[in-house]
Design a protein around this nucleic acid. Structure first.
Lengths: 154, 154
DNA sequence: CTTCATCCGAGCGCCCAACCCGGGTCGGGC
DNA sequence: GCCCGACCCGGGTTGGGCGCTCGGATGAAG
């Protein structure tokens, strides 16, 4: 249950791109603005390009720009582009795992968990994050003071 | 965004324990019933014991039993016991990360995501899973046919 | 005092995350 | 047409964590 550095970096780079809607932005400008290792960021941008989330332009006046409007890029898109499918169990899709005996209903738990993750990741867009204006159902989660406590562990 | 084998194994072993409420169950019996590598399962049981989720008894008639009733052990308890805090970002708790500039509101996303994960993991208990009777809000997620599709990727 | 099962630290292989390099390739400007 | 700038891309390196194993110590029961 970890959010990788890769996703975090990808979202931040895309936010930077979305905010300078006009022209192209180079890899180094993105890296400097968000404090991301340059070469590593490049490998992320490459993946984003293959999924159509950004468009790269070579040459002297080159750089990157968004592949489509910021309000049509969800967090789920970004996550799947750089990290593969959401909420896998042992590297497999939860609906394909066979449980039996006493763990007969365990699959339902993982399906439900994935649905919960999706409900957040598929509803939030780059434009929402830029405006600081998340969908109401996500904002409700964030506003709950309980969401900010550090867990009941340790 | 991966559910590790370790959590999956831990839950399955605990379910097995919960179902044979009466006596103690040995590591090998658990391993055989759920098809989990024996020595590996042992290291998991050790962690569960340190968190009080199971009680180990040594000796000839030894084995494991639950540390408290099955309806008082949540999936969040299990996950935190074997995998540490839920939904970390880059190994840090989301509320401790400082974002600024265009990614000013990114922290809210991770907080919301963690809240969504918690809402499932803290509401489902071992007893629920055994009975196949999940909390209504989780069951609602599972019943949605959309929850079963394999993602819109690739 | 032997047997059985849990306890416990250590260690191994592998893959992936996080990076770095060296070059190829394309586009624009002069 | 040449060169510079920036993306494109395969590979390499390092470190850490996951999945899993081993050998032995400790304790309970017959």
């Amino acid at each position: 249950m970890q959010v990788t550095a890769r996703i975090d970096y990808a979202v931040r780079a895309l936010l930077e791109l979305a905010s300078s809607e006009a022209g192209r932005v180079t890899r180094d400008e993105l890296a400097d603005a968000q404090d991301i290792p340059r070469r590593y960021l490049e490998s992320i941008l490459l993946q984003l390009r293959r999924e159509g989330l950004v468009i790269g332009q070579r040459g002297a006046t080159g750089g990157y720009r968004l592949g489509r409007p910021a309000d049509q890029i969800t967090m789920a898109d970004v996550s799947r582009a750089v990290d593969g499918p959401l909420a896998l169990v042992q590297g497999q899709r939860p609906e394909h795992i066979q449980y039996d005996g006493t763990s007969r209903h365990l699959g339902d738990l993982w399906i439900g968990l994935r649905a919960a993750v999706r409900s957040v990741m598929e509803s939030v867009t780059l434009a929402d994050l830029l405006a600081g204006d998340l969908p109401t159902e996500v904002q409700a989660l964030v506003n709950d003071p309980d969401a900010w406590r550090s867990g009941t562990d340790r």
